[in-house]
């Protein structure tokens, strides 16, 4: 069910934007590239959310970036005296 709903969402997004694209005229290449990149990133995270694969996600990168500093700060907050 989960995969069906997500596939439906992606198809609806593409159809809606395709129809608007046809109506409004061609977009610059960078728009199309960004569009594709966003969809690819969405698929990547959705694949992780299914549990079939375990890959590094958006919040894993944030944890890698800010985790050590935040942990040190919280450790200092917990220290008494």
């Amino acid at each position: 069910m989960y995969i069906v709903i997500l596939s439906l969402c992606i198809v609806c997004v593409i159809v809606a934007d395709y129809r608007e694209g046809v109506r409004d005229g061609p977009r610059p290449s960078r728009t199309k590239l960004t569009y594709g990149l966003l969809l690819a990133l969405a698929l990547y995270h959705m694949a992780d959310a299914t549990g079939l694969i375990h890959v590094m996600t958006y919040y894993d990168t944030a944890n890698a970036l800010f985790g050590p500093a935040a942990d040190a700060l919280f450790k200092w907050f917990k220290l008494r005296g």
């Binding site: 969402c9 997004v13 969809l39 990133l41 995270h45 996600t57 958006y58 919040y59």
Partner: peptide, 14 residues
């Protein structure tokens, strides 16, 4: 729409 879908996917993964 693709930006919102990407955000939704991040929420689902989190």
């Amino acid at each position: 729409f693709p930006l919102a879908l990407f955000m939704a996917a991040i929420s689902l993964a989190a």
